[in-house]
Design a protein around this nucleic acid. Structure first.
Length: 294
DNA sequence: CACTTGACCTGTCCGC
DNA sequence: TGCGGACAGGTCAAGT
């Protein structure tokens, strides 16, 4: 479940590993994931080199010298793993979660002229890769609708308040998961941010006091920033560009912590269902705001 | 328009 | 041991 910190970690890793590389060819093994006409691959991909890698929300954008870009969404179980010409064989003594590649969940393979490979693995096949002109990336409907990047300086307390004002009747967790409100937050960081800000996920947005939303703004930034420093969170599937785990999950306060004690007050953390998602909460620390008392 | 729910997928786990 | 069903959750389509 790559969210903003995981995708950012992959972006940084791939920037080191493949920017400047020239693409020899692409192997599309699953048309549900990627279905680009081979004539287009020949004309704008083969022989092009990678000029840069960007991220918007949970989307990765790989720019090519030909004026085209790969737009990649990892969804739930997508991975982008690089293997140099010194391929890790089976039993290589590293902490890679991924064995020999390609394997049965490999959907797309990028082959570079220096003999190295980039593998797109996706167990559940929710992810996708599109190839469009670099100019058109910003015109993709999904990207156009995205809300602000939470780690940008432009994302102020007031921006969060304004964005949330459109969803006054929603449960606050549902609003945080809405990519048009704030971009890049998924289930893990929604739960962690709400815990840090001491807001119950079933609170109605319109009932949460303005200063409490200020606390939430700070919590979102803190949680995402810490996770990037820890290389993201590996629950089961996520790996970075080198196939290695992230360690943020060890720092999580509530996510997947049901049955353990709240670090702040000692209450047992419970797991409930909010907005159709498994949700972790300390019912003592996290206040529920419901009536529009404001 | 605002908001909620189900579908898309596959691997894993739990109870019988 | 095998098997059905629930569950995982990012995003979109369809529903209220």
């Amino acid at each position: 479940m790559p969210e903003l910190p995981e995708v950012e970690t992959i972006r940084r890793g791939l920037t080191e590993l493949i920017v400047g590389h020239t693409i020899k060819t692409i192997e599309q093994r699953d048309s549900k994931i990627m279905a680009v006409d081979n004539r287009i691959i020949t004309s704008v991909v083969e022989g092009a080199h990678i000029t840069g890698i960007r991220r918007r929300a949970k989307v990765l954008i790989i720019d090519l010298s030909s004026g085209y870009s790969f737009v990649i969404h990892l969804k739930m179980t997508g991975q982008l793993v690089y293997r140099g010409e010194h391929n890790f064989g089976a039993g290589h003594p590293n902490d890679s979660l991924v064995g020999e590649l390609p394997d049965r969940s490999t959907r797309v393979v990028f082959l570079f002229t220096n003999g190295s490979h980039l593998y797109f693995n996706d167990q559940r096949r929710f992810g996708w890769i599109k190839l469009i002109t670099t100019q058109d990336v910003a015109k993709i409907d999904f990207i156009q609708k995205l809300g602000p990047e939470p780690l940008d300086h432009a994302f102020t307390r007031d921006v969060l308040r304004t964005q949330l004002a459109r969803r006054k009747k929603s449960l606050i967790k549902a609003a945080l998961l809405d990519q048009t409100v704030v971009a890049g937050i998924g289930n893990i960081y929604a739960d962690e941010s709400l815990y840090l800000a001491k807001i119950h996920p079933q609170s109605r947005v319109g009932a949460v006091p303005s200063r409490t939303l200020g606390r939430l703004h700070l919590a979102i930034k803190e949680v995402l920033q810490l996770s990037i420093e820890k290389g993201g969170s590996t629950d089961k599937n996520y790996v970075n560009a080198e196939g290695k785990r992230g360690s943020y999950i060890d720092f999580a306060q509530v996510f997947r912590k049901e049955g353990t004690r709240c670090p702040r007050c000692g209450t047992i953390i419970t797991k409930i269902r909010v907005a159709g998602r498994g949700t972790h909460v300390c019912t003592t620390c996290q206040k529920i705001y419901n009536k529009s008392t404001q």
